[in-house]
Design a protein around this nucleic acid. Structure first.
Length: 300
DNA sequence: CACATCTCCCATCCGTCAGC
DNA sequence: GCTGACGGATGGGAGATGTG
């Protein structure tokens, strides 16, 4: 297998800094994507723009969105744009592979630690879960458990209705679009008069966000951190739409959900579908004002 | 120094799926 | 069915950076 190995630093035993950038890319810019095609096509479009062969208005919405992600990627990593322009295909493959490695690795680590502590967070204060949930096994979560099922249930539905529970278990009801689950709302309750009230301000979401981006111990009142957390390491200043979607998806599918696999196949899996619907929703032009308010709330 | 905390990485395991 | 390749999950641990 001929993989061109081109290390950036002089010390060849260290991992390529691209991996670290890949970690942050996955958490804050975009998850669930094939990085090589993203770069390849983005690069090709850029070249065509410069040559006057292509205009932004020629792109479909999907292409526009992909190109936007490409631009964010290039801007996030110093000298990447320049490097890509002078790289042959094998080198681009290598770059994509390193970024992908980081992106997947971060996701694996976050899932691993979150799915365990999330048990603490959903356990009632001073009480216990009945039946108890295993910290390591997820198969009995999701709709199969009273506590996780209630949190995952779309907020417009009544979890206490047996018929609804049954339909959720059999997959007849799919959570998507503006039918958001309870855990996304502040106090895990829906204000029927204002669907935006408290949306994406759920306590679980906030805890998970701190856990991943600040540091695990910052979730409690006093942080015991002795070193920089992820946000600081990568110079992250503010909460982004993609990072909110990332955390929401982690909690939704990987911590509360029962599915065992965080898949990125071509088939739309639960996690990917959920991620996309969150992003699409938060990027809807008509919701801009509310989203700005939301981000302001997060960034206080 | 011993320890605590945290990020990052690796080796290994396991489920899925195409090709026979 | 069987099998091997592949990719994601998992557990463990190295290394960085702080504290008492």
């Amino acid at each position: 297998m001929a993989i061109p190995v081109k290390h950036v630093g002089s010390n060849s035993t260290r991992t390529d800094p691209l991996v670290s950038h890949g970690r942050h890319f996955g958490r804050t810019i975009h998850s669930f994507c094939r990085i090589f095609p993203l770069i390849k096509e983005g690069l090709s479009r850029e070249v065509q723009f410069k040559a006057g062969l292509l205009r932004y208005t020629d792109l479909s919405n999907q292409e526009l969105r992909e190109h936007h992600i490409y631009k964010e990627l290039v801007e996030a990593i110093p000298d990447l744009g320049e490097r890509l322009l002078t790289s042959a295909e094998p080198e681009i493959h290598y770059i994509a592979e390193m970024l992908n490695k980081g992106s997947m690795g971060a996701c694996a680590d976050d899932t691993k630690s979150l799915k365990s502590v999330v048990i603490d967070w959903i356990t009632p204060l001073g009480g216990s879960l009945s039946p108890p949930l295993s910290r390591n096994v997820k198969t009995d979560r999701g709709c199969f458990h009273e506590q996780t099922g209630r949190l995952l249930c779309p907020a417009t539905l009544n979890w206490d209705d047996n018929e609804i529970q049954k339909q959720l278990k059999t997959g007849q009801i799919i959570v998507s679009g503006d039918n958001w689950p309870f855990f996304l709302y502040r106090d895990h309750t829906l204000n029927a008069e204002n669907l935006w009230d408290g949306l994406f301000q759920g306590e679980l979401l906030v805890s998970a966000f701190k856990h991943v981006f600040t540091c695990p111990s910052s979730v409690e009142k006093e942080t015991r951190a002795t070193r920089a957390g992820n946000a600081e390491i990568h110079g992250m200043r503010s909460v982004t739409i993609a990072s909110l979607a990332y955390i929401s998806t982690l909690v939704h599918t990987l911590c509360l959900g029962s599915s065992a696999v965080f898949s990125r196949n071509d088939k739309a899996t639960d996690s990917e579908r959920f991620y996309r619907s969150v992003i699409e929703f938060l990027e809807t032009p008509s919701e801009t004002a509310e989203v700005e308010d939301l981000l302001r709330w997060w960034n206080v």
